[in-house]
Every structure is written in C-alpha cells, then in structure tokens.
C-alpha cells in the first residue's frame, strides 16, 4: 500500500515537472505593440513551388500585401532575414513606406545550391531584435521550413517563447507538397502557442480575403479615436457653512471662468455643484444645488447668456477622492463646468 502511494506521488511529481518543462507557451491573446517579418532567404526559397513561381517572389508579394493592410496604429517593427542573417529594416517605429521599400529590396535571385538553411540559428538571431522591443510582439516567419543545418528550429522557437512570453510566432508557409519535413517543422512551431496563426503563402497571394483574415488575426483593428471631454474646475470657492453666497475673494476665479466662456462662444456648460460626504445626502444634495445656482447667477450677471448654461447639484454622489480624510474631502468640495459642444 505504501509502495502504491509512493508511486502515485512520483507520477504526480513527474507530471508536474513534465508540464512545467513541456514548453507549451501561454497564449498571447493581446494586440501586438511590435512586429517582425522574419524571412528565410536560403537556397530552397529561390526554388519554384510546384506549378507556381519562385518561393521568394511569392513571399515578397505576400509581405507587400500584408504591409498594406496593417492597421494604422503605432508599432515598432523590423524586417530580418536568415540564411544568412541580415537586417533589412532595423528595429524602429513602423513606417509603412520604409517597410515596403525594405521588402522590395529583398533579392529576386540568389544561388540555390550550396546555400543551406540554418533555420534554428535564424530563429535564435531574433533574440537581439526582440530584446529591443517591449510589450507584445508578433513574429511573422516566412519560410518553407527546410531546415538542414544547425540547431533544431523547433527547439529554438521554444527557447524564444521561454525567454519572451509576450511573443507570438505566426507562419507563412511556402512549403510545397514535397517539403514534408518543412511542413512538419512549421506546423510544430505553429502548434507551440495557441495565439499562432499559420497560412499558406500561395493562398495568401491569390486570395485577398484570406490575406485580410490573416492580418486581422494578428493585428488589432484600430478603435475610433476616444472622444475628448472638457471640464473646468473652480477651486477656492469655499462657501461658508450652509451658505451659497459669492464672496469677493471668489470673484477672480469665477471671472476667469467667465473669460473662458466668453472666449469660446460656441460652448455650453453645465455648472455642477459637488460636496464632500459630511452631513446627510439629502442636505448635501440641496446645498450643492444652491451653490451651483449661485455660480450660474454670477455668470449671468457677467453677461453669459442663460441659453449657454444650466446648473445642477450632485451633492456627495460624485466624489473624486476619499471622504475619509480632510484632504480628500477638500478635493471633493468643488464646482465644475462640464463643457457641451
């Protein structure tokens, strides 16, 4: 019985160790702040895909198409090649035109034979690139997967994931039917992380919808620009206890607000009265209404048309600070002008 219990514990420990070391990357389901095009320029990439063009020609067309579709947001980007390692566009703020120029500069012809594919080292060479990027990074690997030199590219990808958990490696495969090993390698890298998207380069080249889907799976659609409100906060309008009369020392602050309103004749404002939480809610509600009305009357007396203003009291219901401290309560005691355009 004791031996069986020991065995169960050992199995559990082994399972935990295996799970920890299995290299299964956590999904990065967040918008990328950076992206890297990582393009294989080994000899096999200058061969023809069966019944189609030279793989590198397809790669360039696809990358140019993707580059055109990338949503208009701020990124850092880079264009790296491997076999041999080459920086075409160094890490820096993304510039669509500069990236297009970099893609177009990729050689259309290179020697095929005698140019092996150190794909593992090519993926390793991502390390200094990724080290310059913070936040989430999408790596778009364009390759036929034909690794035939150096360390295992799948293990190198696993090492990248281990060091950079906010990276996701997406695949554009240019492996054709005969490139069985290449397909296996690319598929293994794709399956390493649930965030990874994989597509056939040939399909992306001829199907705009497929390319759009690929891009939208990797990049986030930019949201509409956040609307901007305007608010003017009047400070130092320290009414006496239970009072709402405007004292002479308040007038310069109110006059400055009047000046802003006169300078911007298109705006309308809601004058809001706010209190701290001392006293009952009902009392504070009434007090804030009286005080907002006092500010309204002052503005009216200074020539601001009634059509451009209204007053409202919010009592203690909209605090901007804690009411547990005197400082917090002082911050809550305020009049605000919310601008409506």
């Amino acid at each position: 019985m004791k031996k069986f219990k020991m065995l169960k514990v050992m199995v559990l420990v082994l399972a935990l160790v295996f799970a920890a070391g299995s290299g299964m990357a956590r999904a990065v389901d967040k918008c990328p702040d950076n992206f890297v095009f990582l393009v294989d320029q080994s000899g096999s990439m200058y061969m023809h895909i069966v019944g189609s063009q030279v793989k590198m020609a397809i790669a360039k067309k696809v990358l140019l198409g993707i580059n055109d579709m990338i949503p208009d947001m701020r990124y850092n980007s880079a264009l790296q090649m491997f076999a041999p390692v080459q920086t075409v566009v160094p890490v820096g703020p993304y510039d669509r035109a500069a990236m297009a120029k970099g893609i177009k500069s990729i050689k259309e012809e290179q020697a095929i034979f005698g140019r092996l594919t150190p794909m593992g080292p090519g993926i390793m060479a991502l390390d200094p690139v990724l080290a310059k990027m913070s936040g989430n990074t999408a790596v778009i690997l364009v390759s036929d997967g034909m690794a035939n030199q150096g360390p295992d590219p799948v293990e190198e990808a696993r090492a990248i994931y281990s060091k950079y958990p906010n990276v996701c490696i997406h695949i554009i495969s240019l492996a054709d039917a005969s490139d069985k090993k290449g397909k296996e390698i690319l598929t293994a890298i794709n399956k390493m992380n649930t965030c990874s998207v994989m597509a056939e380069g040939v399909a992306l080249e001829c199907d705009a919808a497929a390319m759009e889907k690929f891009v939208s799976s990797i990049f986030c659609t930019p949201k509409k620009a956040a609307p901007k409100e305007e608010v003017i906060v009047l400070r130092g309008i320290n009414f006496d206890f239970d009072k709402s009369n405007i004292k002479p020392e308040f007038k310069p602050v109110l006059d400055e607000a009047v000046r802003i309103l006169m300078k911007n004749p298109d705006i309308r404002v809601t004058i809001e009265g706010h209190t701290d939480a001392m006293g009952s809610e009902a009392y504070n509600q009434k007090l804030s209404e009286r005080r907002a009305a006092a500010v309204y009357d002052y503005f009216l007396s200074k020539g601001v048309p009634s059509s451009r203003m209204r007053s409202v009291g919010y009592g203690e219901l909209r605090p901007i600070a804690t009411n547990a401290t005197e400082e917090g309560r002082a911050l809550n005691r305020r009049a605000e002008l919310k601008v409506e355009k």
């Binding site: 305007e230 608010v231 003017i232 906060v233 020392e249 602050v253 400055e256 607000a257």
Partner: peptide, 9 residues
Amino acid sequence: SSEVTEIFR
C-alpha cells in the same frame, strides 16, 4: 479623455 482646467486663487 477629458481636458481639465483647474482655476485656483
């Protein structure tokens, strides 16, 4: 976002 103007005395 809000553009905030605070006036003090």
